[in-house]
């Protein structure tokens, strides 16, 4: 309700984009919103949901450079964090890629026709158990 009020105040392109974002669930996922949010998702994201919807890319972009170039790993905007929370599982309990059709990332991105370049390189699923066990040793 609060969100929709805010949206109404928006004009021009911004309004179009946000309206599109709000409606993203309608296509494939309207009957199962938990799937869209992710198997490991907690009760809130690192920031307010409405802020994240608008600005997650800025956060990621800011922190990617700090992580990669300066080696600062305690950052808010970790794409690994996105994937860890927002990847869903299928009936067999296997993770589904976050950029698969209708999943958390691609749902919005395809609806708003914004290209999703992150997953050209980044893993789209949380590391499997065997990986984490080995890397932790």
């Amino acid at each position: 309700m609060v969100l929709s009020k805010k949206l109404k105040q928006r004009v021009g392109i911004l309004a179009v984009v946000f309206t599109a974002l709000m409606g993203f669930g309608s296509a494939a996922l309207s009957d199962n919103h938990e799937r869209a949010i992710g198997a490991n998702a907690g009760d809130a994201c690192v920031k307010d949901t409405s802020w994240m919807r608008r600005n997650h890319m800025e956060l990621l972009k800011h922190d990617r450079d700090r992580t990669l170039r300066q080696g600062i790993r305690s950052v808010e905007g970790s794409i690994k964090g996105c994937v860890d929370c927002h990847a869903n599982k299928d009936e067999q309990g296997h993770f589904i890629s976050v950029n698969a059709e209708g999943e958390f990332c691609s749902g919005c991105h395809s609806y708003t026709a914004v290209s999703l370049d992150c997953f050209e390189c980044h893993a789209t699923k949380p590391d499997t158990q065997s990986t984490t066990a080995r890397t932790a040793k």
């Binding site: 490991n40 907690g42 809130a44 305690s74």
Partner: peptide, 17 residues
């Protein structure tokens, strides 16, 4: 939901914002 992931994620977020 299970809250562990969120805690883990926030644990990484050491910055005050």
């Amino acid at each position: 939901v299970v809250d562990t992931a969120r805690r883990r994620f926030l644990g990484q977020a050491a910055g005050a914002t």
